[in-house]
Write a protein that binds this DNA or RNA. Structure first.
Length: 300
DNA sequence: AACACATCCTGACTGC
DNA sequence: TGCAGTCAGGATGTGT
């Protein structure tokens, strides 16, 4: 499922292919991918036609592409199964593709999404607190953020990510630490895969109450979070179930580095005990029952 | 503010 | 073989 590394791989791909070329036409095959856009299909197409994307910016799992209409951007979220594919215009039609955008440079941006949890919309940009709104190293620093993304916290790879602030908030949380890691308004970019992997590396149980974890251990945990995300970005993301592809339709290679997620029954890479999967909060949580135990006393 | 829970959605898989 | 049921889970909205 697309998380930060997958979104970043897609963002980079888009930055290399779809910028500065006018959008000639848009074909919508399933308008449900535009349900977040207030004006619907017609409005979406008429705003974008003849316009071009200026840059590709990311915060957490959200990607947005400012357009040459002052103060507006197209916002993309891949949801559970979304893919942004860039093809030549004569490339064969692909299953589950919900929308085509034909560009003057001969390329076609395709939005594919099996489960339709992803979305595209045009949104207004507003000022951001801090030096930059998100990650877009190829372009000039973006100081504006879409309204619909402004509540999303900075991600661990953002230079302005404030670990001390996050730690402070965690001191008031009684829920399990994994719940907090998945809270995009606390820290963004982490989903089920990288939460399980980071917790495994830090030897912390997913249901360890957040406030019971020492500052030292939280620092260690977030060190692992950052490390896992960086490694996965370098590998082009995780393609666990064929749902995630880069813009060329190719898989990422991080799946071979997974130690917990999807490893149910396989030996723990540290101690050899079988990795377990537990259903928790409508999700699967993968962990080593030996290395990752809930501690009654404060976790140091 | 934090928490708990329901909702959206389709295709792959399981069991009878 | 076929059909019904279950599962996968990110974001959002509601009620407490």
């Amino acid at each position: 499922m697309p998380e930060l590394p997958e979104a970043e791989t897609v963002r980079r791909g888009l930055a290399e292919t779809v910028l500065d070329s006018p959008i000639q036409s848009i074909e919508v095959f399933d308008s449900r991918c535009l349900k977040k856009h207030p004006g619907g299909e017609q409005d979406f197409s008429s705003i974008l036609t003849g316009k071009k994307f200026l840059s590709a910016v990311r915060r957490g799992k959200f990607i947005w592409l400012p357009i040459d209409v002052e103060g507006f951007a197209m916002v993309m979220h891949l949801g559970m199964s979304g893919q942004a594919l860039v093809r030549t215009q004569d490339y064969e039609h692909e299953k589950q593709v919900r929308l085509h955008m034909n560009l003057e440079n001969g390329l076609q941006l395709r939005f594919s999404d099996q489960r339709l949890f992803g979305s595209l919309m045009i949104d207004q940009l507003g000022p951001v607190e801090g030096k930059s709104a998100g990650y877009s190293p190829e372009s000039k620093v973006s100081t504006e953020i879409p309204m619909s993304v402004s509540h999303i916290a900075r991600d661990p790879l953002d230079p302005e990510f404030d670990l001390a602030k996050v730690r402070k908030k965690l001191k008031n949380r009684t829920a399990g630490i994994k719940h907090a890691l998945l809270d995009q308004q606390l820290v963004s970019g982490i989903g089920n895969i990288y939460a399980d992997e980071s917790l495994w590396r830090a030897r912390v149980h997913f249901n360890q109450p957040a406030h019971s974890i020492s500052t030292k251990k939280l620092n260690e945990l977030f060190g692992h979070v950052t490390e896992v995300l960086e490694e996965a970005v370098a590998q082009g993301g995780t393609s666990f179930d064929e749902q995630y592809k880069n813009i060329n339709g190719q898989s990422g290679y991080f799946a071979q580095n997974l130690h917990a997620y999807g490893q149910t029954g396989k030996p723990c890479g540290r101690c050899g005990r079988a990795i377990q999967r537990q259903s928790w909060q409508n999700r699967g949580s993968h962990f080593c029952p030996s290395c990752q135990r809930i501690r009654k006393q404060k976790l140091k």
